[in-house]
């Protein structure tokens, strides 16, 4: 039986761990450790290897959810985790200092993976920081897509990673983007 995995990535404190907790059917596995670097100014612990969750499907199949660590020094993990993934959920923390720069960074890092699969972007903490707004994200993504030869239009949603329905909508949009023919078969 072939299972599939979806990768959830993004900078520190974007809500990756929270999103997996929100949608996973099983007790989520985390490798959080006390933050000892600059991260501790934003949160007390941080993911150092990966987060893991599962969505169980009818017939015993599973969708595995892998959350990457946010810090750049763990980027060697990103390629390992992304291998065999069917799509990427990129969460951006809008209360960070330079969220658009984070977008640039992660799109560039995952460029090859996105080109082969698909991408949705969730912007978290827009309620804490209204700028940049979604318009600016769309504009910046369009520039990046042109630069990296990616699909010009991807779903970009305001996201509260604590809300199951927000995370579910990100995944639903990812699936319909990956295969538009699903529309013909899904009621």
């Amino acid at each position: 039986m072939i299972d599939h995995k979806i990768i959830i990535t993004g900078p520190v404190a974007a809500g990756k761990t929270t999103a997996i907790k929100a949608i996973s059917d099983v007790m989520h596995v985390s490798t959080d450790e006390s933050a000892s670097d600059m991260t501790n100014s934003t949160k007390s612990s941080t993911t150092v290897a990966m987060d893991y969750g599962v969505i169980k499907l009818e017939g015993g199949q599973k969708i595995h959810l892998y959350g990457t660590p946010g810090q750049e020094r763990f980027d060697f993990m990103w390629d390992i985790l992304a291998r065999g993934g069917i799509g990427l959920v990129l969460l951006i923390n809008n209360s960070a200092k330079q969220p658009l720069a984070d977008l640039d960074f992660f799109i560039a890092k995952f460029r090859d993976f996105i080109a082969k699969t698909g991408l949705v972007i969730g912007v978290s903490k827009l309620d804490q920081n209204a700028e940049p707004n979604l318009d600016q994200y769309h504009e910046r993504y369009a520039e990046l897509a042109k630069k990296h030869g990616l699909s010009p239009v991807v779903p970009i949603f305001e996201t509260d990673a604590r809300l199951k329905e927000d995370v579910a909508m990100l995944l639903e949009a990812l699936l319909f983007s990956l295969d538009t023919e699903l529309s013909k078969q899904h009621v």
Partner: peptide
């Protein structure tokens, strides 16, 4: 993957 995608959509639907 269409089959598994459809199953996943069914699982997500009540939430999304």
């Amino acid at each position: 993957e269409r089959g598994i995608f459809l199953k996943l959509l069914d699982r997500l639907r009540p939430q999304s």
